[in-house]
Design a binder for these strands. Structure first.
Lengths: 166, 166
DNA sequence: GCGGAATAGTTCAACGCTCAACTACGCTAC
DNA sequence: GTAGCGTAGTTGAGCGTTGAACTATTCCGC
């Protein structure tokens, strides 16, 4: 399930506006994050025909022992809604990269299974994507900046998705 | 114009895979970035009916002296393609928040102009959005982490969009 | 000034995502 | 065993995004 928002009442009074320094930090981060994700997605899509969203699904499946996963678990893993994942898996099925299989121990459940063709597609795309992540991200950062990036991500994850930080 | 990708040949040989530490750093950052942007967008959309993409357009216009901007400049500012911006401005026009105006000194050009209604809508949304950015981001980070976030953003921006780092 | 290239912006079709139904199955208790 | 509720997943309509094709204007060299 994707991040839900509870529309709680806002605190009354003057909002806590961002000062100039906070503005700069926020915008720099936001722009860089958008540009980075955008560039990585475009690079992957144009070089391999696989969008980053689809790539993440293939990676998740490939990392399980049997190369299969329950739909809901896969959706959680990919920060995707169930509906979105269902649509995406349908498209991947059309490409012959994934197939659906009813879940043995729960008649409601479906398993998404990575096919050999799907695994091969992933094997083709992975080096290209990793190289892009290096080029656009790691090559630009010092070891200390990488450490800070990790700290930032983990700190925020604890707040945004406590369950994942197990 | 949005980040373009030149499909240059990949370096031959074994790709430079990410080691376990790099993987962790990359995934933590990527997940947190996606969750954060997603949550802020949902919060804003549900509380105000303005998506983050539209909000950025209104902000950009409101920050100019005359509350108007050339379409291409606005697209660059919002990390948007021209096509995307054109569609978005059409929708904002339907809401009466923006209007188009031919550019005096360039017959090809169009100006997007923020209306009073548009400005009022922004004034209503801004405190709600700022509060969300505080709650989901700044309140979770130490001053040092904020400084690192800024450094990360600026470092990456210099690589991803050198022109913006003027 | 005139022809060709470049620039500004829009439009269209294909696709992806969201949200709200909807179907189907399982779980619990009576 | 069956009613009622919760869970798993799919579907469809509506909207947003993408990339390519298109129109209109300006710029440049002669």
């Amino acid at each position: 399930m994707i991040s839900s928002v509870s529309p709680e009442p806002l605190p009354a009074g003057e909002p806590r506006w961002l000062d100039a320094e906070e503005q700069k930090a926020w915008r720099a981060w936001l722009y860089s994050a958008q540009l980075l994700q955008d560039r990585l997605d475009r690079d992957l899509t144009h070089r391999t025909g696989i969008s980053h969203a689809y790539y993440e699904i293939l990676v998740a499946l490939s990392e399980t022992p049997e190369r299969m996963m329950r739909m809901s678990e896969l959706a959680d893993r990919c920060l995707s809604s169930r509906s979105r994942l269902s649509h995406a898996v349908s498209r991947l099925e059309e490409r012959g990269w994934v197939r659906r299989q009813v879940c043995a121990d729960d008649g409601r459940g479906q398993l998404a299974v990575l096919t050999e063709e799907g695994f091969a597609a992933l094997e083709g795309a992975a080096p290209i994507h990793v190289e892009a992540v290096r080029r656009e991200l790691f090559d630009q950062l010092s070891p200390e900046q990488v450490e800070n990036m990790r700290d930032f991500g983990e700190t925020l994850l604890r707040h945004l998705d406590p369950d994942r930080s197990r």
